[in-house]
Each structure stands twice: as structure tokens, then as C-alpha cells.
Design a protein around this nucleic acid. Structure first.
Length: 407
RNA sequence: GGCCCAUUCGUCUAGUGGCCUAGGACACUGCCCUCUCACGGCGGCGGCACGGGUUCGAAUCCCGUAUGGGCCUCCA
């Protein structure tokens, strides 16, 4: 991965790395994380930390220590000298250029795109070592592939046109060629490269929005890859078992935020309540929301079926943690509710429901007519978790107080 | 401009010459369920970019056009 100047990990790069990871894990290979850095600034160091943190959060791991492109600069320089001696390179204005073959074609069988070939005489003699001695990306990249024993290069399609040069370099060095797989890009809704104006693009923004890591991974895997004609929901383990490069498509896809939201809702609803509470508590902590843990845990059964992502949580349950402004919507019903609820004991949702349904009947109203004003007085909103469960959680004294205040 | 690549419902996709009257999912939408919202159930809308071939037969193969994208840097 290239270190990102902003420090944030772009979701497109993650998707590409995910394909590497799925492939490596499935075939029992190694997955290396290499940072294609060109300097060692503090920005790079922070960016590297950020990349690792985001990857780990998503559930992607890698083997061995993180590698850096810069680490092999010396090796690259030596190999450049070798190419110079062998006549595969020449000096030009202090730089060293690779001498491309002048005839024939260079081709490879791309694991996702099939046969691709370029005419050698159209390839420019590219600079492999700059005048100041720093080797360039297009040289270090294949050199690192040799050094690290890379068998499969799975990368974005923007590298397709670099590949013929890298293959020629590898051949000139007498190295074996890896398998290349160029995966399609991810676009925004306008067909342009996915960027901030389309919505969230960095992993930590998705994290802050309350997406579940496995759901995000599932969604990302489906961008350009499919298992069959009907399977959509797949756990990380299932993805690893089922992934294959030959089922990766060749055409770019559009990031569909609505579908991600739906899929995330599927995962959240399917979560064990204990795990849901754990995930929710961690998220609240990251958001700096400090609500009592026990109450938060108690809300889980009330909202688990309703949320697509955790960022929707606070608005649903805020009434349990903060005061609610009285309403003047229907004072009579609120007053009647106070009377109906005062004798309720024990204060449980079932007994509360009985009392309130009886009240509606006595008033000659449909349940929704009666419950509406009560909901508003209790939660301060027209949309809320189940009314009876909400009343139970709020507690009898506070519930009666709020109804009284609106009567 | 040159080279390379892509093109199936709005979106993600299944489809590798006959199983396709093109299947699924999201979105949208109608009905049902229902204390709101959501969930769930049953329906609906909607697509092979275009033009030529090849073939008994093409979404699938070939050619062209159009559109979109990538690269063309002593960037990565």
C-alpha cells in the first residue's frame, strides 16, 4: 500500500488489499504488507500506524513485520548497476534508464483480465535510478517482488500499464515472473474515482459511522467479486473459503452506500446481544458518549432490530439519558395516561401495555391515537423504540413525571 | 493525441453458443403485519450500449462505432 498523505486509509486501497488477503489465506500462502514509501518523514510514520490500525479493525492481518519499499533501495541500486553492466540499462543525465526491448511484444495472462499484451517498441525507457541516486517505484517494485518471493501481485487496474515494463525488468534480471491480477477500480455514483464528495471513503469514517467490520468486509468483497448468483451474506471465514481470483470481474464498480447500510443492518440484527452490547459500548466510547453501561446494555433489545448503523443509536435512546421537553400536543390523553399508569405494579412492559390498551379502549380510540401523544411526552419524538419497553426502562417516577408535565 | 482496458435492470451482479420469456440482491414501489419506526411476508417496476458479421441458433464468438476509465513523471 502507498502511504496516504492525509493519514487516512482509502477504502479502495483496502478493497484491493482485502483481495490479496482473501487469496493468501485461502491457499495457505503468506500475505505481506509493504508500504511503498519514498521517504521516512513523520507523516509516513503516522500514516503507517493508521493503515495498520484500520486494517486490524477490519479484521485483516498480515504475516511478518511491515515492509518498506525504501528498505531495499540499496539492493535496487546494486541491481541497477548490474543492468548497466549487462547492457540492459544506460546512463542519461546522471540518471539510469532501463533499456526496453525494441521489438516483439510483452504479454501476460492476467488472473482476472485474461491475456494482455503491449508492443515493446512503444514502451519508454524508464528511469530506474534518479540523478540523486534514489531508485524509482517502477524499479523497486519488481525488485521487492523478487526479494520478498512474491508469487502473486494483486493490485489496482491503474497498474496495468506499468506491468509490461516491470515484466521486462524482471526478465532482464533473470527473475521468475509472478502471477499478475489487476482488480477493477471502485467509482462513485458519477462514474468518477471514489472521493470524499461521494460520501465516506476512509476506513475510520466508516468506523465512526458505526459499521460492523465483518459487514464492511463482506460488502467490499462483493465489489468486483461474487461467489454465485444468489449468495450475499458471507462471514470473513466464508469469504476466505470461497474467494477466487477467476471470479473477480474486469469492469469497475460503483460504491453503493445504500446497499452497505442494508448489509450492515443484517449483521447488526444477527449479532448475539452480548456481542452487540460490547460493540456498542466500544463505539460509544470512541464517540466520547459517556452513558451508564448498564442502561446502555438494557437498550439493546429495544433497538437491535431498528438500526442499520450505530450512528443512529443516540437519537433513538437519548430520552433515557437526558431530559425531554414537555409537549402540548394532547394534554387530555397524557393526563388520562397518568391516571391509568399510577396503579400499575409491578412496572413491567406487559402490565404497562395492558393498562394502556385498556385506556385506549375506554377512550374509544384506536391504540395508535392514544399511544402517539404518550410517546411524544415520554421520548420527545414521534419515532422511538417500543413504547411499553421504553416506559419500563425509563422507570415509573420519571415516566409519570413526563406525562404530568405534558398534561 | 498514443497505448491498454471495460460496457447485462438506477446500483452490485449471475450468465463462458441452445437450460434466457435474461436469474438474484440493494434501491424504488403496491399490499399484508403493526403502538411509531424498523423487521418480516407476498407482489410490481426495471437491463444485454449501438451497428455489422459468424452460426441452424448469440447477452455469450469476431469486427467496427460510441461511451467510460486507466496510463503515458528523474510520482507512487
Amino acid at each position: 500500500m502507498a502511504p496516504s498523505p492525509t493519514g487516512f486509509l482509502h477504502i479502495g486501497g483496502v478493497r484491493t488489499f482485502l483481495f490479496n488477503w482473501l487469496f493468501a489465506r485461502q491457499v495457505g500462502g503468506e500475505c505481506l504488507l509493504r508500504i511503498e514509501n519514498t521517504d521516512t518523514s513523520r507523516e509516513v510514520a503516522e500514516s503507517v500506524e493508521q493503515i495498520q490500525e484500520s486494517l486490524r479493525w477490519l479484521g485483516i492481518d498480515w504475516d511478518g513485520p511491515v515492509k518498506f519499499q525504501l528498505d531495499t533501495a540499496d539492493t535496487a541500486r546494486e541491481l541497477a548497476q548490474q543492468l548497466l553492466r549487462d547492457g540492459h540499462a544506460y546512463e542519461d543525465d546522471g540518471a539510469i534508464r532501463f533499456r526496453q526491448p525494441k521489438e516483439g511484444v510483452v504479454s501476460w495472462e492476467d488472473a482476472v483480465r485474461g491475456h494482455i499484451e503491449f508492443q515493446n517498441d512503444l514502451l519508454p525507457d524508464l528511469v530506474i535510478v534518479r540523478g540523486d541516486g534514489r531508485p524509482t517505484y517502477n524499479f523497486v517494485s519488481p525488485v521487492d517482488d523478487i526479494t520478498d518471493g512474491i508469487t502473486h501481485v494483486i493490485r489496482g487496474e491503474d497498474h496495468v500499464s506499468n506491468t509490461p515494463s516491470q515484466i521486462n525488468i524482471l526478465r532482464a534480471l533473470g527473475a521468475e515472473l509472478p502471477v499478475y491480477a489487476h482488480v477493477p477500480n471502485i467509482n462513485g455514483h458519477d462514474g468518477k474515482k471514489l472521493s470524499k464528495r461521494h460520501g465516506a471513503v476512509s476506513v475510520d469514517v466508516f468506523r465512526a459511522d458505526g459499521y460492523y467490520p465483518a459487514a464492511l468486509m463482506n460488502f467490499l468483497a462483493l465489489l468486483g467479486w461474487s461467489y454465485d448468483d444468489h449468495t450475499t451474506v458471507m462471514s470473513p471465514q466464508e469469504l476466505v473459503e470461497r474467494f477466487s481470483l477467476d471470479r473477480v470481474g474486469a469492469s469497475p464498480s460503483t460504491f453503493d452506500y445504500a446497499k452497505l447500510d442494508w448489509l450492515n443492518g443484517v449483521y447488526l440484527r444477527d449479532l448475539d446481544p452480548q456481542e452487540y452490547a460490547r460493540f456498542l459500548l466500544v463505539w460509544l466510547g470512541e464517540q466520547g458518549i459517556d452513558w451508564p453501561e448498564e442502561t446502555v446494555r438494557a437498550t439493546v433489545p429495544l433497538i437491535q432490530e431498528k438500526l442499520e448503523k450505530l450512528s443512529q443509536y443516540p437519537d433513538y435512546v437519548r430520552f433515557l439519558f437526558e431530559p425531554v421537553a414537555p409537549t402540548t400536543e394532547d394534554p387530555a390523553t397524557c393526563a388520562a395516561a397518568v391516571e391509568a399508569l399510577t396503579p400499575v405494579d409491578p412496572w413491567e412492559h406487559a402490565s404497562i401495555e395492558t393498562a394502556l390498551r385498556n385506556l385506549a379502549e375506554r377512550l374509544g380510540q384506536k391504540p395508535r391515537q392514544t399511544f402517539g401523544p404518550i410517546r411524544l411526552a415520554i421520548t420527545g419524538a414521534k419515532v422511538s423504540p417500543g413504547l411499553f419497553e421504553s416506559l419500563e426502562l425509563l422507570g415509573k417516577p420519571e415516566s409519570l413525571a413526563r406525562l404530568a408535565a405534558s398534561s
